[in-house]
Each structure stands twice: as structure tokens, then as C-alpha cells.
Simulated scan of single mutants.
Amino acid sequence: MSIHVQKSFGGQHEVGTLYLVGTPIGNLEDMTFRAVRTLKEADLIAAEDTRQTRKLLTHYDIQTRLVSYHEHNKQASGPELIRLLQEGKSIALVSDAGLPAISDPGADLVALAAAEAIPVVPVPGANAALSALIVSGLSTERFAFVGFPPRDKKPLGEWLDHCGKLEETIILYESPHRLGRTLSAMLEAWGDRRIAMVRELTKRHEEVARGMISECLARLEEHPPLGEYCLVVEGRKPGSGEGAEDAWWAQLDLEAHVSYYEATYGRKEAIKKVANDRGVPKRDVYNAVNR
């Protein structure tokens, strides 16, 4: 595979350009002059939700033709958009809100364009994950964006195992009807950590709830979740074992700890998870519970 170097500006391109245009995450004023100009000058705007995007285009009097590109039609729509780009058309890609290609099918279109040496140019704008991070009060030195947690129990358990080992600040999205379950699973797997629950960013009811996971769970009992949430969670403290002193399993002996996981994962996998929790070799756990 030979390297391809894109020069976004200057020179003549034989093909069109794919622009990734950031759009507001709530407040329509969070639209850059460059984003408006790009949407007006593009030959085509590809949108995840055309109804939502049309509101934005109407607000800024943008008349550019609008087409649909989303998770359910990307297999057919993607190659067609690439064909238009190869013919020299310029296309502006937008998501429902924020930056396209982050936890949405825009990433697939970018990959197709890059594979065909079609220029892909970012037009930066608002982003929910980074906006939540900078108001969280948690460390911004190193962070990991992990998208939406899995819905099913086993994949969620594996996700918690992986993310629980991260020392950087963790940023994720969650829907209101799964928020309580996710926070409870975090508390059980990671112990109590500092967290910021952020919702309605840039909107009239913008809210940032900062505290421990347990405190945020208690708040949800009195204030049921409304709207999509961005969660910013403290990473594992450097040098600590996988379980902190206040972890959910701290008062369990090894046999009880293994039994907890065994009901769901089987004994072999349970021993592995206990070893990960406690930061000890699997062999030590195995020998201790099989005497």
C-alpha cells in the first residue's frame, strides 16, 4: 500500500471534495461563517436526518439540494455519493448535530472517499463530547471517547472490563431510558468515581451534575432523566489495582467474588474477571479457589 498525501487547499483537484461540516448541537447560533458558506457553495448536502437539517438550512436561507445519507441506506447511498465526487461534485456531509463521522455512518463515507483519494476537508464546529469534557471539572490532559455502551448484558460487561482499566478521563453518550442502568453497572464494576452528567448542551435547559456515581444515581431518583446525556467519568487512578478500596467487591472473599461472575460467565471466565478486578495473576485466583 502506497501512502497518499492530501493537499486540501491550493492546486487543482480532478475530483470533488467531501466537506465534513459541523452543525449546532442545540443553539442555532453555534454555526460558523465558514460552515454556512460551505453549505451554500456545495453542490449537494448529505444529511443523516433531512428533516432536522432542513430546519437549519431554512434558518440560514441555504438553498442547496439536500439528500439522505444514514445508517440504513449507506450501502446504496455511499457509492452513489462517491460517484458524484469522482465526477467533480462537491458534497457537504452533516450529521443530526455536531461533527459528522463521530458515532455515525459518516465515518464509512469518509473511509470510502479516502480509499478513492478524494479530498476530505473538515469544517469544524460544535461537539458534544468535548463540550461536556471542558465543563466537567475532570482532567482534560488525556481522555477517551467510547461512544454508546452496549445494550446487552455480556457485551456491556466486557465493555466495562475494558473501560474500567483506562486511566484517562472517559467520555460516553447515553440515552435517558438506559442511563440509570449504565450508572449502576459502572458503580458495581468500577466502584464510586467522580462523574459529570451533562445534558441539553447549549440549550435553554443545559445542565451539568457533578459528583460521585452514587450521588448521581440518587439524584436520578428525584429527577428522572430527560434528553440525551453525555457522561464524563474519572479514569482509574494510576498505579492502582483494577479494584479500588471502595469497589463493590471489596468485602467479598475470593470464592464469593468468583461465584458472583460464575452464574453469568462460567467458572473459567469468572476467575479471569476476578483476577482483572483485583489486579492479581489468574493462576493465584485459580489456586486459591480450587484447593
Rank of each mutant, 00 (worst) to 15 (best):
H4I: 05
K7D: 14
E14P: 03
E14L: 13
V15G: 13
Y19N: 00
Y19K: 00
L20C: 00
D30K: 04
F33S: 05
A42C: 13
A42L: 04
D43W: 01
L44Q: 06
D49R: 05
Q52W: 02
T53E: 08
Y60H: 12
T64S: 07
H70K: 11
H70D: 13
H72Y: 15
Q75D: 14
A76Q: 12
P79Q: 07
E80W: 00
I82T: 09
L85M: 09
A92D: 03
D104A: 14
D104T: 08
L109G: 14
A111H: 13
V121N: 00
P122R: 04
P122G: 09
V123N: 00
A128F: 01
V135Y: 00
V135M: 10
E141G: 14
P149F: 04
W159G: 06
L160F: 09
L160Q: 11
L166V: 06
E167L: 02
E168Q: 13
T169V: 06
E174I: 08
H177F: 10
M186P: 05
A189D: 07
E200D: 09
R204I: 15
H205Y: 11
E215H: 07
C216N: 10
C216I: 15
G227L: 03
V233S: 02
V233A: 04
R236W: 11
P238H: 11
G241V: 00
G241D: 08
E242V: 01
A247T: 11
L254F: 11
A256C: 02
Y265A: 03
Y265K: 01
K268E: 15
A270C: 09
A270M: 06
K273F: 13
N276C: 02
N276E: 12
V280R: 04
K282G: 08
R283N: 12
N290P: 03
